[in-house]
Design a protein around this nucleic acid. Structure first.
Lengths: 217, 217
DNA sequence: GATTGATTAAAACAATTGTTTAAAACAGGC
DNA sequence: GCCTGTTTTAAACAATTGTTTTAATCAATC
């Protein structure tokens, strides 16, 4: 609980919760997400988190059991956030393939632009190679989505001449690659931060166009 | 040095180097490449390497100074191997853009198929965020390659209506993404190992076609 | 105001890490 | 056979890690 002793003329009064209450648990989660995302699981120490959150190291294990538990918890939350927004788009039965792609690309790029390290977080998880990942269930739900069915139908009717999963892979690859190599891109001096962002804004419009062109080969 | 005592009738003879000489240094490099690639820099311990290479931990620091030095050495070598093959393709002034893309895609995918963890190695490096990377010099040389000039010319003459770097990013993204998510793909059960490989073989032919379609939008 | 249960804090713990030391083993030249 | 410099080994070192312990603090209830 957060107090403040406030002078008011000659009176002193004790005011509770002058700042919005932020629980230790929430502080840990907020800080841990940032540090895990930036440095990865292994390079992050619970002392990093404790220092940054201004709490005791023991509190982390008290609230989350272990470093690994904390990481898993945050990971679940992060992935859930993403898929909770993508799934409705994919399963909307009233929109065309082209519209779904347009929405998905736009949303995905915006998501990464807001949280640039998110992509590293995802890759980190993949590379960790751990099983029982919430990611897999989410991926499976995308494979079974209405969008997937639309693509399969497109293949059967001869609309595309290749396996529909290629559409998904190409979309994901085109969205994510520039972000993955961004550190190198910026450091090599080919583009500065603003130029990079502008290119990504252009790509929001271009990727759907490109994917459309692909489907017509 | 490697000896063997070989029986020959009633004679015994001492034969030197019956097996090809493998120096300690080479053993360390071979083992370290595999383990670093598989587990990443942080998760790899010099004791892992020493045990696997069947040598003493101190030998690693004797020959390479430090774990970080060893990693940098291997990284340099690995990246050099890749770019030494891509650069000639990119700088050949007698081949068309389409042909360069075809060669590059095919070679790149083959390279990753041969060493599936290579892509994680690359991403690991990017995510490590270290400076003074040989990678950056290599990327810069690609940006200044004859292929890049061909793409720029194509944009100027109106052959493409967007920044040529998008071609590079799309090519790289489409090549790498399936490999990055392979662990999830296989684990989710959508495809098995053989199906995945077959899809990648198809993509060797399809990606150049798709890129060509893109350039005509 | 004492009691209770939940939370926080400081310190210690055990294990693992990369690195160094100092001695042994080795190979080659005289 | 002895000496020389190189390589390998076992052991120790210092630092850092995640975790646990134990006591103090806090907020609420009676």
């Amino acid at each position: 609980m957060c107090y403040a002793i406030v002078r008011f003329g000659k009176e002193f009064s004790l005011i509770m919760s002058i700042a919005p209450e932020i629980s230790t648990e929430q502080k840990i989660k907020d800080v841990a997400r940032v540090i895990f995302t930036k440095k990865g699981f292994l390079a992050t120490t619970i002392r990093d988190i404790a220092t940054e959150a201004d709490i005791n190291v023991a509190s982390i294990n008290y609230h989350f059991g272990s470093k690994e538990n904390l990481f898993a918890f945050i990971m679940d939350e992060t992935i859930k956030r993403l898929f909770d927004k993508i799934e409705p788009v994919f399963n909307d039965e009233t929109t065309t393939i082209a519209k779904k792609i347009e929405l998905c690309v736009g949303y995905y790029i915006d998501q990464i632009l807001e949280n640039p390290d998110f992509i590293f977080f995802m890759v980190n998880e993949v590379m960790g190679g751990s099983t029982k990942l919430p990611m897999i269930n989410n991926m499976r739900s995308l494979v079974n989505s209405y969008f997937a069915k639309q693509l399969q139908a497109l293949q059967i009717t001869g609309g595309i001449s290749f396996h529909p999963v290629n559409i998904m892979w190409n979309m994901a690859g085109m969205i994510t690659f520039p972000f993955l190599s961004r550190p190198q891109i910026l450091q090599s001096g080919s583009f500065n931060q603003d130029e990079f962002l502008e290119l990504m804004q252009e790509r929001k419009k271009l990727i759907p166009v490109w994917l459309n062109a692909m489907m017509n080969v």
